Computed example of a mutant assay.
Amino acid sequence: MVTERLQELFGRLEQITNVQDIAYHRIKEGKLSPVLKTRTDHLGNEKWKSVHAASPVLVENDQLLREMVRNPKPVFVQDVKNDPRSAEEFFLFGIDSILILPVTDGSAVRGIVVVASIGRLHSFTEQEVRQAEELVEQYREILLG
């Protein structure tokens, strides 16, 4: 049931942004814990999880995640290669543009939904970001479950 609802969320986010690579991570013990992603790139879910296990993403070492945890608002990078805030992991996964949406429980960020444009730049508009943020809020209970 949870997987189907996450896939539904991902489909709706794709409709809003026209970006296909979407993933959900919980934040556990200060690092990202991958839950589910779309199957649009060369990795697939199991390989994606194993890459994260081999190279954990620590919130404290990622400028964008640190910023989001302090101030839970969507963060986006239009051009990963030319933005100094870009994390090494963006390059590892071949991301060109990225939108990171916080999943909050009260004021605490408990997870993130990532919309990652791979293979081409994407300019996230204010409308896309606002609609995506509203959509993530509608699915918050499933995401926190």
Rank of each mutant, 00 (worst) to 15 (best):
K31E: 08
Q20L: 10
D41V: 14
E67R: 11
V115Q: 00
D21N: 11
Q131C: 04
T17S: 10
L92D: 02
E133L: 12
H122R: 06
K81L: 14
I98T: 08
A54I: 04
T38M: 00
P84D: 08
D62Q: 06
Q15A: 14
F10P: 06
Q127I: 12
E14R: 05
A108M: 14
V69T: 10
P56F: 01
I95P: 03
D83T: 06
P84C: 04
A116I: 04
F76L: 10
G44A: 09
R85G: 01
R26Q: 09
D41Q: 12
I142G: 02
D62A: 13
E134T: 09
T125G: 01
A23V: 13
I100D: 04
D41S: 08
V75C: 13
L9C: 10
K28Y: 07
G44F: 02
L121E: 14
A87L: 10
F124A: 02
R130Q: 14
R85D: 09
L92M: 11
V80W: 01
T38P: 00
F76S: 11
A87H: 06
A23K: 05
H52C: 10
D62K: 09
I100G: 08
V114P: 03
N45M: 06
E126Q: 14
F124M: 06
E29R: 10
N45C: 09
R5L: 08
E88C: 05
D79L: 07
P34T: 04
R70A: 11
E133N: 12
A132G: 14
S107Y: 04
P102R: 06
L9K: 07
E89C: 07
E60F: 13
E126V: 10
Q138A: 13
T40L: 03
L9N: 05
R70K: 06
V19M: 05
K37W: 02
N61G: 09
T125W: 01
D41T: 13
G30S: 06
R120K: 07
G145E: 02
Q7P: 09
D105S: 15
I142E: 09
T3N: 13
S33C: 15
N45T: 03
S50L: 01
V80E: 03
R39L: 13
Y139H: 05
R130G: 13
N61C: 10
V69H: 03
E8I: 03
E126I: 06
E46K: 13
